Simulated scan of single mutants.
Amino acid sequence: MLVYALTDTGNVRENNEDSYYISDGKNLNLFIVADGMGGCNGGEVASKYAVETVTKYFFDNYDNCNKDDESIKKFIKDAITTANSFVFNKSFSDLDLTGMGTTLTLLLIENKNYFIGHIGDSRAYLIRDGNLIQITEDHSYVEELVKLGRITQEEARIHPQKNIITRALGIDEEIEVDIFTGNVFKNDVYLLCTDGLTNMLTDDLILKEFKNSENINEACDNLIKLAKQNGGYDNITIVAVKEV
């Protein structure tokens, strides 16, 4: 398994409110991206707390989890729910953190299967057989408009309200977490990213870069550069995982 991660503040923001985690692959194939939001440094704190809480939950409890599919899916939901409670409670401890929240998209590879836990508008993609497949669904206002047929996907990319999300971690006491699962095959590439990438680049451009690059490291480096060339209005974070 090959893994590469990269984060960049972008061209406009002073702080990087994105966080990510990649495991060393020895005992646990866990990967996470999170995109924080909130006044002052709330977004940065929210994403950091969320990632740290989820990873701690895994390290403290995953060895005792049954490794069948249903148990793993429940475990992922429990980990993200635990992080939600932590961030939600922390938001009341400091006025500067009031209302903070974060997206969180998690990838776990176990038993030749992938498991994805997701809330918000960061994304998980699968590149397989020369195709780019978006696994997750954006929890956003514009995605709801797309589903209702009021705007197209292309119009959604430039919609003035594209940053309004309908689900996030830490905002409400209770959350709904999406879980996706499927088989892992040789040469699969799993891509986790924040919307600082997908708001600047189309899916076709992302796929083209992976096809034209020598390896996932080069592809991620080039995608960050392209996103910044196209504006770089937000923080940009990418985690790429290739099954070899």
Score class of each variant (00 low, 15 high):
Asp204Ile: 11
Val87Thr: 11
Leu197Lys: 14
Asn215His: 11
Arg150Gly: 10
Tyr190Leu: 12
Lys90Asn: 02
Thr136Ser: 10
Ile164Pro: 10
Asn199Arg: 15
Asp195Asn: 01
Ile116Tyr: 11
Ile171Ala: 06
Asn215Glu: 03
Asn89Met: 13
Leu97Ser: 05
Gly99Glu: 02
Phe88Pro: 08
Arg157Gln: 07
Leu191Glu: 05
Ala124Lys: 01
Val177Lys: 14
Ala219His: 03
Leu126Trp: 04
Leu132His: 08
Gln134Gly: 07
Ile116Ala: 13
Thr198Phe: 10
Phe92Val: 11
Asn199Val: 02
Leu132Val: 07
Thr98Phe: 10
Asp129Ser: 13
Asp94Lys: 06
Gly149Ala: 07
Thr152Ile: 10
Thr152Asp: 00
Leu148Ser: 15
His139Met: 12
Ile158Gln: 12
Asn131Gly: 05
Phe88Asn: 10
Asn111Ala: 03
Glu214Tyr: 14
Thr181His: 05
Gly117Asn: 02
His139Gly: 09
Thr105Gln: 00
Leu107His: 15
Ile175Glu: 02
Tyr125Cys: 09
Val87Gly: 09
Thr166Asn: 00
Ser140Trp: 00
Leu107Tyr: 15
Ile151Pro: 03
Cys193Phe: 06
Lys208Cys: 00
Leu197Asn: 07
Asp204Asn: 05
Cys193Leu: 05
Asn187Ser: 13
His159Gly: 10
Leu108Asp: 04
Asp221Phe: 13
Gly149Leu: 07
Asn131Val: 09
Val184Asn: 06
Asp138Gly: 01
Leu95Ser: 15
Phe88Thr: 01
Arg157Lys: 14
Ile206Arg: 08
Val189Lys: 13
Ile109Ala: 05
Glu174Met: 02
Glu143Phe: 14
Cys220Gly: 12
Glu144Trp: 07
His118Ala: 09
Glu143Asp: 13
Ser213Thr: 06
Ile179His: 09
Leu97Val: 15
Ile119Met: 09
Met100Asn: 00
Thr105His: 01
Leu104Pro: 08
Leu97His: 13
His139Cys: 01
Phe88Val: 07
Thr105Asp: 05
Lys186Phe: 12
Glu155Gln: 12
Arg150Asp: 14
Gly149Trp: 03
Gly149Ser: 09
Tyr125Asn: 11
Leu97Tyr: 14
Ile171Gly: 05
Gly117Arg: 02
Asp96Asn: 15
Gln134Lys: 14
Thr202Ile: 13
Thr152Ala: 06
Asn163Gln: 15
Ile206Val: 15
Leu132Pro: 05
Gly101Ile: 06
Asn163Asp: 13
Ser213Ile: 07
Glu155Tyr: 08
Leu191Pro: 13
Thr202Tyr: 10
Ile158Met: 14
Gly170Gln: 04
Ile127Lys: 06
Asn187Phe: 15
Tyr190Glu: 04
Ile133Phe: 14
Ile133Arg: 05
Thr98Ser: 15
Leu132Cys: 04
Ala219Pro: 02
Cys193His: 02
Asn187His: 11
Phe185Glu: 15
Gly120Thr: 05
Asn183Ser: 08
Thr105Ala: 09
Thr198Lys: 07
Phe210Asp: 06
Ile151Asn: 06
Asn183Val: 07
Lys208Val: 09
Asn217Ala: 14
Glu174Tyr: 00
Gly101Phe: 01
Leu104Phe: 03
Asp121Arg: 02
Gly149Gln: 03
Glu173Ala: 12
